[in-house]
Design a protein around this nucleic acid. Structure first.
Lengths: 338, 338
DNA sequence: TTGTAAGCGTTATCAC
DNA sequence: GTGATAACGCTTACAA
């Protein structure tokens, strides 16, 4: 706000026009109680003299900021960028501004971000938690003060919260079933860290699909990967070096699937001839790999929209019971898992 | 700020502790003029009672918001997401918050965003312009009021502005020279719209490289693409259907290069055997295509950091002369252009 | 239809 | 070392 100094205020307009500041304030808001003539006069003067509402002052007085805070692990991950883009679009359509902070997967940074957002008096908060976050402790400040909070994608496992998620378990079940239907018996599942709910759910879906076909869960055919390329490659190398190759590899994440594809190709194997490969998340690269990677597309735009709409609803009507929205993902069957 | 109501203020603390509000305010800021004892007492009480500074009130009083505005065409484009991520990181490291708006390539929306940002009294603005934007007219409000403004990536062609860009012309020159050195004579250049400075610069670099080797610029070997997949495919089909195939295709954008690769493969051609292919922008998919796409990696993180640092410098010292920062890109020579 | 006055929660100035 | 007071620019009862 530095150097906005000296900017014209409603008092300046009032003085010039020989009316009161409240009249100016009302006229600018098109308040019917002010005569058509005065309204016109005020608005014209304001326009001609470059008057611009000071939202900071207005916010202080109104005790609301029409701003929502967004805290995500990182902005530059495709799926999150998609959600953020959608959040920004729908928030603005409803007249809300958006303040963004990254937790960078750190629970401490996430907590600090929450405090900052509170200090800024955002009207509500949208959060996808960091990998480190345990429970909803970090968000107590908002919860205790009953300020609207909606979790999306990576959410705490607590139905007393407002959450927007996708149907990971069902999608994972479908992927696994499809692999089984295609005759694969030895399916290796490379999951993400099960400290995160989405990965626990994907694991559930996987196990259920096996169960429903009378196959038993086998510890040897399962690993967890921390989602980095480094860890993905190590796991891929490890598995593809084994004597007993899997028929299919199902990764809870396209980046890990990519590692398998690359390692396989380096070893002269081909996908899906030597083994089927299935990913999860539909990264931008997945559709253009050779072979095109089969994967699961998560509904980012829709999740962002629903999250915003729910948050605004909570800001509006104070005490709605918590609700979890489940937006279905879609299986993208391409070439890697024939 | 709704429902932050009833939250404790410095006056509540003052009353409880039988001191004045100014003492509380000072104590909380660790003002040396307040005795150690009082400071401790105040801070402890504040902590125990969950006091949280109301930044809105503080901002109004201080006439600055410690917030910077960011306006970009879209958040969900990889390169921009990278820059935004960097902006957020460095802004927060300096104690600034970040408000984001997308212009969605619309000049009108961009202008509206500028007005909103002004109303919010952001201390400065970071902008990458929309495809439609002509000149710097949209930003007059900030320019006239002398509020710091830094353009990045897509910037107006006006050296009186603060800008952070990459060396497009030199990179384009290098790419073209490399292609020529490798013996290619018929190089087809598919550029982006030259209404945008970066594309004008890439075209300049291309022409200069031809010139320096005594080759002449040939209208037939040039098209502009609007960066969409649809337009990219059409151009690729058109060119690969011609009688006289190019030796090499150089695209000002990886997405367009991808279209060429796909169309070529559909027609049974191979890259780089049938023609060399070079992109620009280093999308996440580029390194994992078959063949791996040679391209130009733009320094997004660095650009974001420099943009923030410059903006904060301008916020700090009012009247620095405008400056353009040129951060070099790096050529990623991979497999598609042997 | 318009005006008066109080107040949102801070911080800065001046005084003691 | 601390306090009183005004002001930041706006909105909103309440009055007129």
């Amino acid at each position: 706000m530095a150097r906005h100094k000296g900017h014209i205020t409603i008092h300046d307009i009032a003085q010039s026009l020989q009316v009161s500041a409240s009249t100016v304030s009302r006229a600018l808001k098109n308040d019917k109680r002010i005569s058509e003539a005065t309204r016109k006069k005020v608005k014209q003067f304001a326009a001609e003299n470059g008057y611009r509402l000071n939202v900071v002052a207005s916010n202080l007085r109104k005790q609301r900021t029409e701003t929502i805070g967004v805290i995500v692990p990182r902005i530059d991950r495709h799926f999150l960028a998609t959600i953020i883009s959608s959040i920004e679009l729908h928030a603005h359509n409803h007249g809300y501004s958006v303040v963004i902070t990254q937790s960078r997967e750190s629970s401490d940074d996430e907590e600090k971000a929450v405090l900052t957002m509170f200090n800024q008096r955002v009207d509500g908060l949208l959060i996808s938690t960091s990998l480190e976050t345990k429970g909803e402790h970090n968000f107590d400040l908002f919860i205790k003060n009953n300020i609207p909070l909606v979790f999306f994608d990576r959410v705490p496992d607590d139905i007393n919260l407002n959450r927007v998620v996708t149907n990971d378990r069902a999608s994972s079940y479908k992927v696994t079933s499809r692999l089984l239907q295609n005759g694969h018996k030895k399916i290796y599942f490379v999951n993400g860290p099960t400290s995160i709910l989405v990965f626990r759910n994907r694991l559930k879906g996987f196990k259920e699909a096996l169960n429903d076909r009378g196959l038993e869960w086998n510890e040897q055919m399962y690993t967890e990967c921390d989602l980095t390329l480094y860890s993905g490659r190590k796991i891929a190398e490890d598995i593809l070096n084994r004597g007993d190759m899997p028929d299919a590899v199902y990764c809870s994440n396209d980046t890990t699937a990519l590692c398998f594809l690359q390692v396989a190709q380096e070893r002269g194997m081909s996908v899906p001839e030597d083994f089927s490969l299935h990913g999860f998340s539909d990264e931008p690269f997945s559709a253009v790999l050779t072979p095109k990677l089969s994967t699961v597309k998560q509904p980012g735009e829709e999740m962002g929209q629903i999250a915003v709409e729910r948050l605004l609803e909570l800001i509006d009507k104070k005490d709605l019971p918590p609700k979890t929205f489940v937006i279905p993902s879609v299986i993208k069957s391409r070439e890697s898992d024939l």
